[in-house]
Design a protein around this nucleic acid. Structure first.
Length: 561
RNA sequence: UGGGACGUCGCCAAGCUGGUUAAGGCACGGGGUUUUGAUCCCCGCAUUCGCAGGUUCGAAUCCUGCCGUCCCAGCCA
């Protein structure tokens, strides 16, 4: 997929690749997106996916989807399936689907190579011992007593590890680099560990599994990855990455380049925290529309295009930043503004009776599906004597600059005509239950009198034709910008109690009862909505993906002081 | 107090092989169009680049020192 890069800032990775192509260092670009199948993808991954595919696309290369499945105790097939679905949903087609586990035989041979060259050894100490000898940030580590085993002994031990002779933890294979290195990753890092654990793909074939450091770079090399893009926390691993590539007979020399991961305010983007939200029931699952997971944002109504343009717009740097969630929402609005058909829907209905409108009559208005795009067509919308308008569009004692309905005031019913509020009807409790209004027949859309200007326009739905629906209004998951930023407090303390508001009796324009799950609409003056999978023709369920920009709400707030 | 990295407008972010007035987007403010207070369209918005010195005719770009922030002591990735 090639996308206009009009909102794509220049960035160091693109600059560098371009340079390398021009200088002839590379002839093509091959990237990869390498998730571990131990959890669901979220917005943080989206940045990486978009970057990897964009770099390959822009320079005519290709991108692999590679599952980094080197730790069978945490990985499951269902995550593989979900990840595939998510990447495809975002709009990308990978060149090859790969698994680090496909390379286990090669990796094993590489390990032997290191052993034979005296560059790796079997350490027979337990984890605590190894940790104790690793030293600290300021003190060098101590060599393991097994560090100088002969290649022959190492080979024998390692082959027996592979053969299943030893229990988990009895031995590990370590690179023989430098126990005094200031970079802790170089203090003889673990390359292989014993795990008698069935692997989702290789079954019981192996009982030793390579570590990330040993598997990742070599997998890159095997696939001919030219640029191995990863996040900043792997910067310290690059010397090890390079060391292994240097000392192994790999078929190519990939280059690791690190960039800053995505941070968004008012949410959390870590598998661990998202897992807690699900496990402890703070949300309704991985696909809860408040979750930043692909499953969640998809159900919330975010579009692949909006996610891609967002990821492109934020840029790629090495400086860590926090992007406002609102930036994501704006990209959604920009996308849906172009493509979502408009509809009328009243969330909190207030009945109006048009006293001079004939009873038992229905007038059909032909209404544009998009005010700026005639090619999107029109539809017929019915009006009857009784209708609903938004409760919030009427105020008995409105503040200054309130352009909506008030007693004695006029307002236009969108696409129909101008009405005047003649009488306010209340129940015993003093609550407004109905407005008795009269309409101006001359002001019908299309009539000469439609030129007449009134300050406000309001949306409505015929009472007789209205479709009752459930509407779910979503707001930010957390009530503070950086819920995970306070180390002294548990982030769940900052969950926004009003992140979901369910409206049980919304009234939709007829036709919407047939909205297919996943279909987007703009409810005029209200926001962008998407039909939820919970929808049935009897009971449509619409999720609010994002509100429209609301200048009035801002103004009103200011007026109130 | 070891190592690695980052610090340009409220939020992102170009520029950083030194050369006239520090891109762009968002946000924000002002104005226009509008039967969505939406969209759209104009205009405005850093004498300043974490701080302090230095080199230079000239520095955000080079040097030195300082300050701040992030990452690393899993047989996780």
């Amino acid at each position: 997929m090639t996308e206009a890069s009009d909102n794509s800032p220049a960035h160091f990775i693109r600059n560098r690749i371009r340079q390398e192509l021009e200088s002839g260092k590379h002839e093509r670009v091959v990237t990869r997106f390498p998730p571990e199948p131990n959890g669901y993808l979220h917005l943080g991954h989206a940045k990486s996916i978009v970057l990897n595919f964009a770099m390959a696309d822009e320079f005519g290369g290709e991108t692999n989807l590679r599952f980094d499945d080197t730790n069978p105790i945490r990985e499951e097939q269902r995550y593989v399936d979900a990840i595939r679905e998510d990447v495809a949903w975002l709009g990308y087609a990978w060149a090859h689907e790969c698994f680090a586990s496909d390379y286990f035989p090669t990796l094993y041979a590489y390990a032997l190579h290191l052993i034979d060259h005296g560059l790796a050894y079997v350490d027979s100490q337990d984890g605590d011992m190894i940790r104790a000898q690793r030293g600290t940030l300021t003190e060098p580590g101590q060599p393991s007593p097994f560090r100088d085993r002969s290649p022959a002994e190492n080979r024998d031990l390692f082959e027996r590890m592979r053969g299943g002779e030893f229990a988990d933890g009895a031995h590990v294979l370590r690179a023989r680099i430098d126990m005094a290195a200031p970079n802790i990753n170089l203090r003889d890092p673990v390359l292989y560990r014993i795990r008698h654990q069935k692997h989702p793909r290789t079954g019981d074939e192996w009982c030793i599994y390579p570590s990330y450091d040993f598997a990742h770079g070599q997998s890159d090399a095997i696939e001919g990855i030219t640029h191995s893009l990863c996040t900043l926390e792997f910067e310290d691993h690059r010397p090890l990455y390079d060391w292994l590539i240097e000392h192994l007979p790999v078929p190519s020399k990939p280059q690791q380049i690190e960039f800053a991961r995505l941070n968004l305010d008012f949410t959390v983007l870590s598998k661990r925290r998202l897992m807690r939200l699900v496990d402890e029931g703070y949300v309704d699952g991985w696909d809860d529309p408040r979750m930043p997971t692909f499953a969640g944002i998809r159900r919330r109504g975010f579009t692949p295009r909006s996610i891609r343009s967002f990821c492109t717009e934020i840029g790629v740097t090495k400086s860590e930043s926090i992007i406002p969630f609102g930036a994501l929402e704006r990209n959604l609005r920009d996308d849906l503004n172009e493509r979502a058909p408009r509809r009328l829907a009243v969330l909190e209905p207030l009945k109006i009776v048009l006293t001079n409108f004939p009873e038992d009559e229905t007038e059909w208005f032909e209404v544009a599906n998009h005010p700026q795009k005639p090619e999107m067509g029109t539809r017929k919308v019915p009006m009857t004597r009784e209708a609903f308008i938004e409760r919030g569009d009427f105020m008995e004692e409105p503040p200054k600059k309130f352009f909506r309905l008030k007693p004695g005031g006029e307002v236009r019913l969108r696409n129909a005509f101008i009405i005047r509020c003649d009488e306010v009807v209340r129940n015993g409790a003093g609550e407004v239950t109905e407005l008795r209004c009269s309409f101006d027949p001359e002001s019908r859309s299309g009539q000469p009198g439609s030129e007449r200007k009134v300050k406000g326009t309001v949306h409505w739905v015929s009472a007789e034709h209205a479709v009752a629906a459930e509407v779910r209004l979503y707001d930010r998951l957390f009530s503070i910008p950086h819920p995970a930023g306070d180390k002294a407090r548990d982030f769940v303390e900052f969950l926004n109690p009003e992140s979901l508001k369910v409206i049980g009796n919304a009234r939709l324009e007829p036709g919407l009862e047939n909205a297919e799950p996943g279909e987007h609409y703009q409810f005029e003056r209200t926001g962008y909505f998407v039909a939820d999978p919970d929808s049935t023709p009897d009971r449509p369920v619409l999720n609010r993906a994002v509100t429209l920009r609301d200048t009035w709400a801002k103004l009103e707030k200011q007026l109130r002081g």
